[in-house]
Design a protein around this nucleic acid. Structure first.
Lengths: 199, 199
DNA sequence: ATATAGTGAATGGCTATTCATTCATTGTAT
DNA sequence: ATACAATGAATGAATAGCCATTCACTATAT
């Protein structure tokens, strides 16, 4: 088996094991077993346990970025673009629970340990949202009073928290489609009745 | 020194240490040192390390619930109530970084380990949001199409993600006041230009 | 004097990492 | 075509260090 193949086998195994047990409870031997390699083999591809975690982020989130950017290429309405982002994010998280858990738990856990927090794949992913918002503002579709740097966090945070119930294992209270629709309704139109000010 | 006093001394020390190092990197001896007690003393008040973490949630979030409920008592406009919740949450998180980090990281970390996820203080806290939304719907101030169970997560997720930058140590891009105002603008009115549909 | 609270060194279990060895593949000489 | 050598990927048992928990002992209060 050639190197590249084994590298990604370990990455996928690690994603699965980290999601199931968490970084600190995951044993190297668990990952090795899952990847069907020897414990020592892992150290031919990674420097240490933490290095595996970082690589999981880089590769898994990198793939997510590629995917959503491709989808966004064929859209030009900023409203639709936000919808595409939300739909994609929630459906990926619903399908790939391992990735969802790693993002939700381990990414935050390790944020403290990563020095250059802004210079990583995760930030790149979230910045897609602010780019869309800025685009919408240039076209006067989104309000100029909205600060893209704050709104991107609000939007991502909403999606992330909503998808969290799926990883914790609470019985599904709502579908991906409904969750997507609700988040978009809230962000685009807010939750006020249009004539609420009359009351 | 009497029992109750020492118990809370350990809780506060643990909050500080968990925030700084994370649950798994925190040593019992760190907590003991911070609380100025012997390692063994901790086991007079808690069963084990994980029990300390659970107690931290229960007590710290419990206090947060009391505080925000008291503030909400003197409001009756659901719009204002949501504002009070956001303002309180963000200002507490900005001030009490230790609590913020414990909520953001360890809560998620431990969610996997806690069996009955819905029956805890954290859920009680987030449910305050859905209660406010339902109230607003009864008064026809909030749209009936909004699902409180989804909106509560979106709202909390937004606040949580926004406050995360303060704990990670990124230089402050925005103030508590501005963040609060932006979240409320987004949730109440959305981000669309009022006349965006004309474009 | 007894009970209760507190102490902190010692224990024991756990696991990341190492490294001497094996194995499979490729190259070279005859 | 065959034998032998060289390479480096892969292995997994052994090491070494960490740290939660315990417990025999001390201090304090009544």
């Amino acid at each position: 088996m050639k190197a590249a193949n084994k590298h990604s086998k370990i990455i996928h195994a690690a994603t699965k094991v980290f999601a199931k047990k968490g970084f600190f409870n995951a044993r190297i031997s668990d990952i090795a077993k899952e990847a069907k390699v020897a414990d020592g083999t892992i150290y031919l591809y990674f420097n240490n346990k933490f290095d595996i975690l970082i690589s999981v982020f880089e590769e898994e989130i990198g793939a997510l970025i590629e995917q959503v950017k491709k989808l966004l290429d064929s859209e030009d309405d900023p409203r639709e673009m936000l919808a595409v982002f939300a739909k994609n994010h929630l459906s990926v998280m619903k399908k790939n629970k391992h990735l969802a858990e790693v993002i939700q738990i381990e990414l935050r856990q390790s944020a403290k340990l990563i020095k250059d927090y802004r210079n990583n794949k995760f930030s790149e992913y979230v910045d897609i949202i602010s780019t869309i918002i800025k685009l919408g503002q240039e076209q006067s579709i989104y309000r100029a009073s909205i600060r893209p740097g704050i709104a991107k966090r609000a939007f991502f945070g909403a999606l992330d928290e909503i998808s969290r119930v799926w990883t914790v294992g609470i019985s599904t209270e709502y579908s991906v489609e409904e969750a997507t629709q609700q988040v978009l309704e809230i962000f685009l139109c807010g939750i006020l009745e249009p004539d609420a000010s009359l009351h």
